[in-house]
Structure formats: C-alpha cells, structure tokens
Computed example of a mutant assay.
Amino acid sequence: MSSTTTTNSLALHEIVLSIADSLNEAQETLRSVSPYDEYGRPNTLYQLPYLDFNLEVISQFETSQTGSSTGGNGIRFIPFRSTETTTKNQGVITSNISGRFVAVMPNEGLPQIALSAITKFNETNSEYAIYSIAVKAVQPNNEFVIGQRIEINFDEATSMDLNSKMSVSAPVFIGAKDGYTRADDGNVYVQVKLKIAEYNAGRTFVFKANSGTQFISIAISKP
C-alpha cells in the first residue's frame, strides 16, 4: 500500500530569493515616501545600502519510497528553528550560510541609456527572408552613444508564445550577432535569415537585444 508524505522544505535559492524580495519591497516602501510633508517641510529619506544575512539550515539526506517501488536518494534543506533538537542524527547536517546583499548603481555605474531598434526587409529567396536589424543606444538627452557593445539573440520562448506554441526555427545570423555602436549613427547592424516557409505562414520571430542591464525586444513578421 502506497503512502504519501508531505515535506515542508525549501531549496536554498528559494530561501535566498525570498530574502532578496523582502529587501526589495522594503526599499520600494522607502522610495515611496514623499520628499515633503503636508506642511512643505523636507522629510527624512532613507535607503538600504546593504543587508547582511546569516542562515542556519539543516541538510537532511532522505530515501523516498512509494509502495513497492523504490524512488531514490535526495537531499532537502530546512530552515533551522530555535526549537530544533541539537541531537546529532545520522544523515542530518546543520550548516551556516552568510552573505550580503549590496546596492549597486544602475547600468553598472555608467550613464543610463535606452535602446531603440528598427528592422528593414532586404530580400527573399527560395529558402529565406533576409532582414537587417539596427539597434541604437541613446542617452537621456537623445544623443546616441558611440562604442557601446550591443548583443542580439533570437528569443525562442517568446517567439513560441506569440505563435500559439508552434515551433519557430532559429534564424541564421549573417556574420556576427554583436558589435559596438558606430560613430556615424550610433547603431549596431546585424542581418538575419528567416525560414521562408514559416515567414510566409505569418510566424513572428522575436529577437532580444541587450547592452549591460538594458534590454529591448524586436519582432519581425511578414507585413
């Protein structure tokens, strides 16, 4: 007779992510404070420059078994509680994990930029539809940035979502799919070849361009 056991445990990355989410919510609350009170006096504004954390977790090795068929060996991580027993059980290890979340400047401390993109149809042949993609990095004053590295990749997951989960063949890049913005117009240019059958069928091909922490999505489909 099979039995079902419910285990309340978390993966280590889930524990750390929950701390990061709580820290982000706290910082957002601090940012929402008005610079001035109802009488026009400046409010004291705060921010969280860093957060040190120390976790004590139990690593417990288990063998799962359902009915007459043996499952397998596994390991689960459980947050340590002050009421936990200090008895050293076989297969149970108590560990300390410490770290620090540190606030960093946007765009790795460089001037903030935005990305923009345009596409241009070139030609078709018996196999492919060929397009050019131009991506530009722009400063807040709308001046383009020279020498900014930009990379362009095919976004297969988003392409499938936009095509009702139908498969979309990966485009072929003509030459490099990354480069540095040019001095004459601030663009990085790449060319891509799209499967002609899927292109004629109205499929949408989505690309993602990024430079540092900045991203932009680019969609190409038959007009």
Rank of each mutant, 00 (worst) to 15 (best):
N73W: 06
L51A: 14
E84H: 14
S34V: 02
L115S: 10
E123T: 13
I150V: 09
N96D: 07
P140H: 12
D52Q: 12
E127I: 08
T124S: 07
I97H: 00
E108A: 15
R31H: 07
Y131N: 06
P42C: 03
V57K: 06
A134N: 12
F101H: 06
S126M: 04
Q47M: 07
V57N: 07
T119P: 00
E151Y: 06
G99F: 01
A114F: 06
N73S: 14
L45D: 03
Q90F: 05
G99K: 07
F144G: 07
S64T: 10
Y36H: 10
K88H: 08
S116C: 05
K88S: 14
L30M: 03
N107W: 00
V92Y: 05
N142E: 11
G72N: 12
L110W: 04
E84D: 15
V33F: 06
N89M: 09
I58L: 11
G72C: 04
I133Q: 01
A129F: 00
E143F: 05
I75L: 12
T87F: 04
R100L: 03
P111A: 10
S68G: 13
T83A: 14
I152K: 03
N125A: 09
T124R: 09
T85K: 04
E56G: 08
N89Q: 12
V92G: 00
N107G: 02
G67M: 02
T86D: 11
S132C: 02
I130D: 06
E127R: 14
F101A: 02
Q65H: 05
A157N: 10
P35D: 09
S69F: 01
T87A: 14
F154C: 01
I75V: 11
E62I: 13
A117L: 02
D52V: 02
P42I: 01
R41C: 01
Y39L: 08
N122W: 01
T158L: 10
N125I: 04
L110F: 08
A103K: 15
G74H: 08
T44C: 09
G109S: 09
P111E: 10
N142T: 09
R149L: 05
Q60F: 01
Q60N: 08
V135R: 09
V104S: 13
I133S: 03
K88A: 15
I58F: 00
T94C: 09
M105C: 05
L55R: 02
N73P: 00
L30S: 03
L45R: 15
N107F: 02
V92S: 06
R31N: 14
N89V: 08
P49Y: 03
K120D: 11
